[in-house]
């Protein structure tokens, strides 16, 4: 993906708007999803995501081809998200509220995966979306980058401009905070037995 992005950036730098459009198409869903989960609001995420790409376009000439594109664009996105959240100064809730049934219990027994577990996995996603919103932004960000956007520790360190050791520590605390958030909401998670 980054190789394709590098090629598109080279063309965009030469003024090919079509290449920039391809770049936007390739990254818009990821960036939008990241910002949506950071801000909790579709309109804000849309505005911020547009701003991300405008900034990418304005800064194309500064892009160093020795770097990879993903960490670069996510860094722009996270900076905008942090600025936005600072300005908000209040808890932001998602405009569409999945899993409004707060009494819902997510519990996975030690059993083989089956249709029921698939349903539970869906429930887990819903519950996680809710719990994620209640985490501190710094925890939410590293969890999303690491597990929802498959970033390496090194890339997260580049995005957040933190040392790798700090990233690892923050991830560990974020997982614990997430687990705690789930428990506080009445969800319990048990170890699950699966076929290796």
């Amino acid at each position: 993906m980054d190789l394709v992005a590098a090629s598109l950036i080279k063309r965009a730098k030469r003024g090919e708007v079509g290449a920039f459009a391809e770049l936007v198409d390739a990254y818009k869903d990821k960036i939008f999803a990241f910002l949506y989960r950071m801000t909790g609001n579709r309109e804000d995420a849309n505005d911020l995501a547009q701003e991300v790409f405008i900034r990418v376009y304005s800064s194309l000439h500064t892009f160093d081809h020795d770097m990879r594109f993903s960490p670069w664009i996510y860094r722009i996105a996270q900076n905008l998200a942090i600025d936005f959240l600072r300005k908000q100064k209040k808890t932001v809730y998602l405009d569409d509220q999945p899993g409004q049934d707060n009494d819902m219990l997510w519990q996975v027994e030690c059993q083989s995966p089956g249709p029921e577990e698939m349903t539970e996995l869906h429930d887990l996603r819903v519950v996680l979306e809710v719990a994620l919103r209640e985490l501190a932004p710094m925890y939410r960000m590293v969890l999303l980058l690491r597990f929802a956007h498959d970033m390496s520790y090194e890339d997260i360190a580049k995005v957040t401009e933190l040392p790798i050791t700090t990233v690892k520590t923050r991830l560990h605390r974020a997982r614990e905070a997430l687990r705690q958030a789930l428990i506080e909401k009445g969800y319990s998670i048990l170890p699950r037995r699966v076929t290796p």
Binding site: D29, A33, A49, L121, L128, F147, V194
Partner: peptide
């Protein structure tokens, strides 16, 4: 069989969060 840790399950859940298209 082995039991997946709670953290692994959380990571798996986070990794399976649905895409949110722009």
């Amino acid at each position: 069989h082995y039991c997946k840790s709670i953290h692994e399950q959380l990571e798996e859940g986070l990794g399976s969060l649905p895409d949110i298209p722009a």
